[in-house]
Simulated assay, not measured.
Amino acid sequence: MDDADASPGPNRPPSLLALPTYLASHVARIGHDVLIAAVGEHGLRLPHFATLTALADFGPLPQHVLADRLGFNRSHLVGYLDAVEERGLVHRTRDPGDRRRQLVALTEEGERLHAELRRVAERAQEEFLCDLTAPERETLTALLRRVLVAHDRRLR
């Protein structure tokens, strides 16, 4: 019998196993837990990691743009930024183009820690997806990205 056809551990209802949303939510929880544990070893939570990653990918951003790109509530982002700023990982300055806005950027320490966290996250992904081949991982990632991008387009 192929591993993909093997009965799941707790003998889940077949009708639920036929629903992609059911499968996606449970698989997401597994991956989420693995990533939370990996990032938590550095005293951070996933929103902190996401914030550092967005700044590493996009460079300095106005605070409201950062919240929108991450899909975070703007008031929640303030708390996440307070925590990582306290640790010296980001700094906020007034936007010279609009003094009402705050620009957020990584510090050197933030860049260093983010690079380490990226390696930690990649190892967590390896652990999470260890039962899939590299091409299967690429396919899974591409399909999930496609669903997310389509959803984001509908929200515009």
Rank of each mutant, 00 (worst) to 15 (best):
R87I: 00
R101C: 03
L70D: 03
L81N: 06
L19K: 10
L77E: 00
G59N: 02
G59H: 06
V39A: 03
R101A: 13
D98I: 02
G31T: 02
L106E: 00
T93Q: 08
L46E: 02
L35A: 11
R12D: 14
A142L: 13
V90Y: 00
E126S: 13
R12T: 15
R137L: 09
L17I: 07
R94E: 10
P20Y: 04
N11D: 15
P14G: 09
A142V: 10
V34A: 10
L81S: 03
T141E: 15
H91R: 13
Q102P: 03
L16H: 11
R99M: 07
A4K: 14
A37P: 05
E111H: 08
T93G: 05
E138L: 10
S15Q: 10
R29L: 14
V84F: 06
L106D: 03
G97P: 03
R112K: 05
H42G: 02
A6M: 12
F58W: 09
E111T: 08
G9W: 15
V147F: 13
E85H: 05
H48T: 05
H76I: 07
L103F: 04
P135F: 13
S7K: 12
R94A: 13
A38G: 08
L103V: 01
L129R: 02
N73D: 12
Q125N: 11
L117K: 03
P13F: 12
L19G: 04
